[in-house]
């Protein structure tokens, strides 16, 4: 999941990386993936994915498509799709996503809320035949009270 330097060699790649030993503070809003291996404090917003590396410390609310946590996050995480807390990951905050997975060893200290996922109900064929009732034949008997 963690991308290498070669992955980011393409200038047209809109991704953001915060390397180890680098501290960033403020509101970071981008269009591409965000990978954090250093320290971040503030607010993170992206339409793409967020990866919190094993040695990263993030003191911020995170909003993204998918969020993968191997380091430490102090703040709320809101993912449009899924949140994965890896075995070295630690989240101290509330999480909201369509799907949540926590590996053995991963820690979540907070509440989790799942998005309601709207799916189309599949059409199914009935397992029995519906027989239409045949209309009664007119026998001429007077049935009026």
């Amino acid at each position: 999941m963690a991308k290498t330097r070669a992955d980011f060699a393409d200038f047209n790649n809109p991704d953001t990386i915060i390397g180890r030993g680098v501290r960033v503070e403020g509101t970071l809003q981008t269009a591409g993936d965000i990978q954090i291996n250093g320290e971040f404090k503030g607010k993170l917003l992206t339409e793409a994915d967020v990866v919190v590396g094993e040695y990263a410390v993030v003191d911020a609310d995170i909003n993204g498509q998918n969020v993968y946590v191997s380091g430490e996050v102090i703040g709320d995480i809101n993912a449009f799709e899924k949140i994965e807390i890896m075995e070295t990951g630690k989240v101290d905050g509330n999480v909201t996503a369509s799907a949540l997975s926590i590996e053995s060893g991963g820690i979540l200290k907070g509440t989790s809320t799942m998005h309601e996922v709207e799916t189309e109900r599949p059409e199914t064929e009935p397992t029995y035949e519906v027989q239409e009732a045949k209309p009664e034949e007119d026998s001429g008997a007077d049935t009026s009270a």
């Binding site: 047209n12 953001t16 915060i18 030993g21």
Partner: peptide, 23 residues
């Protein structure tokens, strides 16, 4: 490219295998 951020900043620290890249 028009649209999007105008500058790509790449920072090399004492650990060159760990780049930083910001827009």
């Amino acid at each position: 490219e028009k649209g999007g951020k105008k500058i790509l900043l790449e920072i090399t620290t004492d650990d060159p295998k760990n780049p930083t890249r910001l827009w």
